[in-house]
Nucleic acid binder design. Sequence first.
DNA 1: GGGGAGAGATGCCGC
DNA 2: GCGGCATTTCTCCCC
Lengths: 247, 247
Amino acid sequence: MDEGEFVENFNRAIAGSETIVFSSLCSINYSGRAESRLEEGDRIIIIKSDKTLLVHQPTGSNPINYMKEGSQHALEQNNGFLVLKSRNPGAKEYLDICIKQIHFLRALSLSDSKKLQLAGSERDMADMLYNSPELVEPGFKPLSREEHTKYGFIDLFGYDKNSCLVVVECKRYAGDMKAVSQLARYVKRIKRARGLTRVRGILACPRISPAAAHMLADHGFKFIRVNPPKYLERDSLMQKNLDEWNK
Amino acid sequence: MDEGEFVENFNRAIAGSETIVFSSLCSINYSGRAESRLEEGDRIIIIKSDKTLLVHQPTGSNPINYMKEGSQHALEQNNGFLVLKSRNPGAKEYLDICIKQIHFLRALSLSDSKKLQLAGSERDMADMLYNSPELVEPGFKPLSREEHTKYGFIDLFGYDKNSCLVVVECKRYAGDMKAVSQLARYVKRIKRARGLTRVRGILACPRISPAAAHMLADHGFKFIRVNPPKYLERDSLMQKNLDEWNK
DNA sequence: GGGGAGAGATGCCGC
DNA sequence: GCGGCATTTCTCCCC
């Protein structure tokens, strides 16, 4: 692709707030929250309509460099090279892409207002336990879920069969020491806030690492095995297919 | 773009392990670690040479859907629609993209072996404090950094001027309650492992949130204000430019 | 806007 | 492979 044509198409797309996709041989410098340099290689670069910039290498899920929403992007000539300068003055972030060779460019006007519907989050787990308290333990009486108070953001809160306060922390993944630390922090806060000497802690997750189990026992807390509920509305068009897959 | 042409180019690119970029109007279902549905909209889809798949909406930095490295991708006809079926049997993950309209497709053979050089990480902070212990406090004597032992992964470890053990936890961002929890966990472990009643804790970060400062004081720990060192090699070609930016 | 916490987190390193 | 932990984390939610 001709460089003049590239510049022209790029500038027209930026002016029109279109989404730009291009690929080029380039080297990249970043300065902002940290500093980085990436030597020459072939990458795919996307500038979205909200001015987010992403640089992707040919492997891996994460962008190797990026600039956040609301950045400014301009092509400049610098020492005989075409340089894409991206700036975010508010965040004091600066990215320079030195373009050595252009593979292609495409500008698009994309229309998409849809949001992702997701099932199987930690919140869904807390909801499930709130609605089916016997999954926590016999006699468990839920008080609240997702409590965002000054005491903390506790997933599930209730009384056990002996009317002792219980803090339940849900994790959709394997429980680790970080999760136990978090539970311990909540229990401590509740004890202090309510002037109680005994508050129980329960960690609810699909499984728990040995070190975390040890630490949990150390605090006198309990592990219960719970899997996050993973189903969208039953009448979803694809449900039959999903059921097939999950066999 | 013609659908037959799209299918042909897609299949040729997959067979040749090329990187594919295309845009289309589509709806998406995912089932795996969770379940999700995304209604019809215009998106950009990338399949990398390692078979990572990314779906991007016209705004935001994160992909709205994705499949990890090593997935399998195939186009199929389904109820009169073209469906891109991505499968990762090992991870039991399944993604279906129902393609309603094709905006463009591009297949590329990209060559990129370069890795990002980064300065300003938490590890760089620990290195700096190890090499300049007076930044921690007068008389601080570093013992080790990034100690990966059974006691935990402690950023920086040493003695203070009174020969009392000190655990230093570095954070490149504002210290929060999670960071204090982490430090408390390390101090507790070191106390137990060495049979000590007094081990000091220091949190080193650019700033600290009020709640975290309160919690830190509660534990008898100390906050020191440290910024992560942000400079690559001084002889970097772009250094002059970076210096310009940072003025 | 800042703080607190989740994420289909991902990526890195060490055992 | 799992475990522990950082991330230019990003994103959401609530104050």
